[in-house]
Design a protein around this nucleic acid. Sequence first.
RNA 1: CGGGGUGUAGCGUAGCCCGGUAUCGCGCUUGGUUUGGGACCAAGAGGUCGUAGGUUCGAAUCCUGCCACCCCGACCA
Length: 490
Amino acid sequence: MSKSLPSRAENYSEWYNELVKRADLAENSAVRGCMIIKPYGYSIWEKMQRALDDMFKETGHTNAYFPLFIPKSFLSKEASHVEGFAKECAVVTHYRLKNDPNGGGVIVDPDAKLEEELIVRPTSETVIWSSYKNWIQSYRDLPLLINQWANVVRWEMRTRLFLRTAEFLWQEGHTAHATRQEAIEETEQMLEVYADFAENFMAMPVLKGKKTANERFAGAEETYCIEAMMQDGKALQAGTSHFLGQNFAKAFDVKFLSKENQLDYVWGTSWGVSTRLMGALIMAHSDDQGLVLPPKLAPIQVVIVPIFKGEEQLANIKSKIDPLVKSLRKHGVSVKFDTSENQSPGFKFAEYELKGVPIRLAIGNRDIENGTIELARRDTREKTSLPFEGIDQVVVDTLNDIQEKIYQKAFQFRQENTHEVNAWAEFTSKIEEGGFLSAHWDGSSETEEKIKELTKATIRCIPLDAKEEPGSCILTGNPSNKRVIFARAY
RNA sequence: CGGGGUGUAGCGUAGCCCGGUAUCGCGCUUGGUUUGGGACCAAGAGGUCGUAGGUUCGAAUCCUGCCACCCCGACCA
């Protein structure tokens, strides 16, 4: 194993893959397309979960759990929903194994065939709406605001660690409402929650918008999304929130009696983010030295590396560092004081940089004598020698500053790589450079398809804040009243 | 599922064309010296060469089937 990572400029996807493995985030498993999320990677996911879960609770949702398996018949109740997922479903057909009478080990027992096949959930709308039928009778039962944390399976042809795996972890919110308006508000509210999380925890700027009909969730009336730009200029869909209209209510016959004694179908939403966010986090900030983690999601925010010869010096350093560690923890900072002796300081420096620890403090005999300590920040890789006295406050301030700065940096990158284009020639040349293109589109699926065919670019979203502006479609010249965002995407 | 490629120690590899029982580096173990940007020396441990068959006195090497993985397409959170 060579010491340094492949560079981003040289081979971006190899850089990404190597980084995920070297930083101990995840690895491929014995099962094709399924990954093992390693402890360090999982701790980041846990921090994401915690922050998101708190936000869901604050907006009135509660968690529940629905089964992994879905009866095949459920899936076919909503027509466009099956169509969207049928091609990538894992199916359970039998419930028992037996020893091969021919001695070939264990085989599927042909006598144990299931009456009805079970689908491993690719998403849970169908099981959940079949339960909602029993839970909802009156307007008093509404709104029903439920979230679940779960794993789902989508049998993808080509997979990549975190970005697209056959099994992935996510949360899926499923809500039911008495009115169309209320469901739309819920859809929009959750989009805001996702955007808030992406920007304030992941330090990743996102565009909020609506998907075109082509890109819409199978079974939704409207799909809202947040789109982020990765460092190679490609777009990554980071979260979606769907307004389901009455589609699932009708498919599963979920009706309620209103205050006015009117029987009507309920209105639904569903929204989710997945372990794909891990991929987004990695690609948004990291560099050729390794991960760069925003302090709010870093499992270790500060690492302290002592530089010493012999027990005596270590004891000396410990007596100064122990109280600092306590003080930092009191400030809510997660600290690791790495006193292990089997690795040299240089090795540790490189290792913690690879793992994206936001701040490193190094202290040796020289510092003890001078009353100083060295602070290195991961985002800029700057090192400064600072007075030991009051370092705890400096650390707290620096963590906030890093959180802020990496957001700024990502934001600036996105600005620099977003262009308004007005001519087809300009579009085709700019798209090769990567980034977002803001252009007019005539609103037809055919045009969208055609552009995708010609350039591999898709409409990432119709931004919520897109201003009304007369123009003509970038491809066809047909009239358009607002710009949409095009990009090549993950 | 089409087109190309690869399978050798925990990881990365040489050897394959031209057949003679496997090379090197990292990592691991033990001991010692080190420690301000991925330390060094010495001694060790670790392999049914993806799998099944065939050719041969003899197969990692040649032939055939199968399996797995990677890359490029079509499909996708």
